[in-house]
Simulated scan of single mutants.
Amino acid sequence: MLTRIFKAPLKIVPGPQFEPLPPTLDSRRHKRYPIVMTGSVRREPWDVVPVRTVNLSASGAALASHVTPQVGESLSVELAFMGVLPARVVRLLPHVFAVEFQVSAYRLKQLERTVKWLAGQNTATLQDGRRYERLIPTIREADLTVDWGQYRVRVIDISRSGVGIATDVTLPNGTPVELGDNHRGVVVRQFKGGVGIDLVDLLGLDLFNEEIDLRKVAAAA
């Protein structure tokens, strides 16, 4: 004897709906501040790379790094005073990529307060950006590359985390730069006749000596 098995009709339960942020919360609507500070980015699966902010808002940041992710890539951004933030890459610029933080409206409000506070602080002092020994290299010439061209500048002094250069080129704070062939950094200080640059990556101990050469290889040859 066959027994007929009756099954209840399948009930489809809609998944959670994620609405895009309203225009008032869009990352481009939040005020961007020229805040320069160190941080790191974690890419899948376990790739962690150092970054420096070029500018920062409550809902996004422009980051200088030696890596170039893909637009749409998801990653985690860790910044001092802000914690670890899930983010998505939204734009690529020369030497810089822009991310949008993927956070709740409540977290966004917290970040607004934090960013406004950071904008009123000296982040270089907060992060002790000049804590490394500084030296004057034997080769004082260096090649500086920015979005609009390449310039020969003079090195004043150098540490593992930054370089002071003499130049008459106008370089506002927050300008992404490259020294030599692959030493990326961000302009963070202004002084008469030059600027201070914070490097994205610390110079290795094998490079940090008086013989360091910040000219491009082709130019130095």
Rank of each mutant, 00 (worst) to 15 (best):
T138G: 01
D168A: 12
R32V: 10
E100H: 06
L85H: 09
R134I: 11
L171W: 11
Q150I: 07
P23V: 08
R140H: 11
A64C: 14
E133Q: 06
L126C: 03
S104E: 04
A64M: 09
G180D: 04
T125W: 11
L25R: 07
H95S: 09
T175C: 13
G204L: 14
K192I: 07
D198Q: 13
P14C: 05
K31Y: 10
D26Y: 13
P20A: 03
P50A: 14
R52G: 00
A221F: 07
A119E: 09
V89D: 00
N173P: 08
V77T: 02
F81N: 04
K7P: 04
P20R: 08
T53I: 06
Y151Q: 06
T138K: 14
P86I: 08
S76N: 10
L63C: 09
R130D: 01
R52W: 01
T145G: 02
L2K: 08
I197R: 00
E141A: 15
T145C: 07
V169P: 00
E73S: 05
T53W: 03
V187Y: 11
E112H: 03
Q70A: 08
V54A: 12
P45N: 03
P16M: 13
Q150M: 13
F208C: 03
T167V: 12
S59I: 04
G39D: 10
P69K: 12
D47W: 10
F6D: 09
R91C: 00
P9D: 07
K7W: 11
T167W: 14
L207F: 08
T53D: 04
I165N: 03
